[in-house]
Write a protein that binds this DNA or RNA. Structure first.
Lengths: 131, 131
DNA sequence: GAGGTATATACCTGTATAAGTATGTACTAT
DNA sequence: ATAGTACATACTTATACAGGTATATACCTC
């Protein structure tokens, strides 16, 4: 991962939101989907993009893929993530993401069999239903 | 200029080198060309890219266009430029650029009629001559 | 093993962008 | 006026990428 690749990862708003969320700790795809309110494909592809460049790591737990920032980060990555966090501190979108994240309880951390609440996960992924 | 646009500007190596150089003060296109050892079109287009997004400003002096970082920068830009400067501090390419810059005397700053030395500028722009 | 859930991937389309060639424009000097 | 210098822009080509639809894969439950 070079500096340019880091910046390439940072130049998409969805990826910025994902990284901002992961700065608060690991999350599974369905929680990201839920918080970002974006379709699964979109979230999944951006995560793959980040992962291919080493900006995030993933592990599998039961049915879920749990993403997190790498434990050992090169200096440039740490610096840029800190900078990002500072830059978005007062941005309404990023703030709202963090609040929304706080209201979810990542039950996978407790070893429970369910990640997202089935009642919510059962919904066919918000896709401009507008009846 | 938003955060994403800033990162878009930062995700090209030539633009990173340009910004790193401008952190040391204003420069004209021919000096940038000289230091970066890149063809004029390339330098000019990257400068236009940066300028369109507000990352650099330009003024005309005699025959030369002199580029500089904006005097009043949004917080996100200042933060990211500082971060960039910190990240490239020990990179051989960026270091060499700065050394090369130091060896040039920006004579336009002294009000002289010539910017680049005519002996060098007269060369038909290094373009893989390989005889 | 049948069906459901969570996630990834293949494929398609439109758009952005990088780099090059050629040309245009603005200014200077003579 | 002519020619040269410094810079920008139009045009072209190749590539990356974002977003969508459809489908595949892996795992779990029963």
């Amino acid at each position: 991962m070079g500096l340019v690749e880091i910046y390439q990862c940072l130049c998409d708003p969805t990826r910025l939101r994902i990284l901002n969320l992961l700065l608060g700790g690991e999350l599974c795809v369905c929680h990201l989907q839920e918080i970002l309110d974006e379709p699964q494909v979109k979230v999944s592809k951006h995560l793959a993009y980040l992962r291919a460049r080493g900006l995030v790591e993933a592990r599998k737990q039961a049915n879920w893929m749990i993403y997190r920032l790498p434990s050992r980060k090169p200096r440039e990555l740490s610096a840029n993530l800190a900078c990002l966090q500072d830059c978005v501190r007062e941005d309404p979108v990023f703030e709202r993401d963090l609040r929304k994240r706080g209201s979810l309880e990542p039950s996978f951390a407790e070893g429970g069999p369910l990640c997202c609440a089935p009642t919510k996960a059962a919904q066919p992924a918000r896709r401009g239903v507008r009846t």
